[in-house]
Simulated assay, not measured.
Amino acid sequence: MKYKSVFDIIGPVMIGPSSSHTAGAARIGRVARSLFSREPKWVEISLYGSFAKTYKGHGTDVAIVGGILDFDTFDTRIIQSLELAKQKGIAVRFIEEDAITDHPNTVRIKMGDENGDLELVGISIGGGKIEIIELNGFKLKLSGHHPAILVVHNDKYGTIASVSNVLAKHQINIGHMEVSRKEKGKMALMTIEVDQNIEDDILKEISQLPNITRVTKIVE
């Protein structure tokens, strides 16, 4: 069941015109910004399906960039996001893709600076709800509507249990968890949605566990 209340069906408080093409797009952009953890110097946005056909008319372009600038769905600055990004010196490029995807409202966001880059694929499933389905080549399923931590780690025995034990010790309840790996015994990505925002000291404790490479959080 994708919708938990009537408010999910109506959609979020937002700058219009469309909950899927505008609010959902803004949320995907904001998750990308949260995972990158800083303002990028350049952004490449590839649009697929319905997004590619209608992104200018429905404001999908300004919404995604607004999210990347860390604006919420109701922030009126979204309307000027392209100009604001230009003023900040962020190079933004849009690409209309012809490839057929599993979902019509699909976007691939690449962003970076001199210190690194990030690649994310998200879909807007309606009512402002989203799913992040790929991150830096790892397959995942992240709603972006709950606090979450993403743990990059070596695919070694006991690593998942050690992270779970830290969360249990601090009485953090796991709502959804999955692990993705590109190759057995190599790097893997642990995606954990939880019921409450996680404090930085807990993230530090997880980051110091054996086989952990990086820990990133998404706040609610």
Rank of each mutant, 00 (worst) to 15 (best):
K4T: 12
K4C: 07
V6C: 00
V6G: 00
F7K: 05
D8L: 03
V13R: 13
I15M: 15
P17I: 07
S18I: 04
S20L: 00
H21N: 12
A26N: 12
G29D: 11
G29K: 13
A32K: 08
K41F: 00
W42R: 14
G49P: 01
S50P: 00
K53Y: 09
H58E: 12
V62N: 12
V62D: 03
I64A: 02
V65T: 13
V65M: 08
G66M: 02
G67H: 01
I68S: 07
L69F: 01
D70C: 09
F71N: 03
R77W: 01
I79E: 10
I79G: 00
Q80W: 00
Q80Y: 00
Q87V: 03
K88I: 01
K88A: 15
K88C: 12
R93S: 07
F94G: 05
F94D: 07
F94N: 05
E96K: 12
A99D: 15
I100Y: 06
T106Y: 00
R108E: 14
R108L: 08
I109E: 09
M111I: 13
G112P: 15
N115W: 11
G116D: 11
G116V: 04
D117I: 00
S124V: 04
I125S: 14
G126S: 11
G126H: 07
G128S: 03
I133R: 07
G137N: 05
K139T: 14
L140V: 08
K141S: 14
K141C: 05
G144H: 07
G144W: 09
I149Y: 12
V152E: 15
A161F: 04
A161T: 10
S162N: 09
S162H: 01
S162K: 03
K169W: 11
K169H: 10
H170R: 13
I172L: 06
N173G: 00
I174W: 04
R181P: 00
G185W: 04
G185Y: 05
M190T: 08
I192H: 03
N197F: 02
E199D: 10
D200Y: 04
L203S: 14
S207C: 06
L209G: 08
L209T: 02
L209V: 07
T213D: 04
V215A: 12
T216N: 14
T216Q: 09
T216Y: 10
K217M: 08
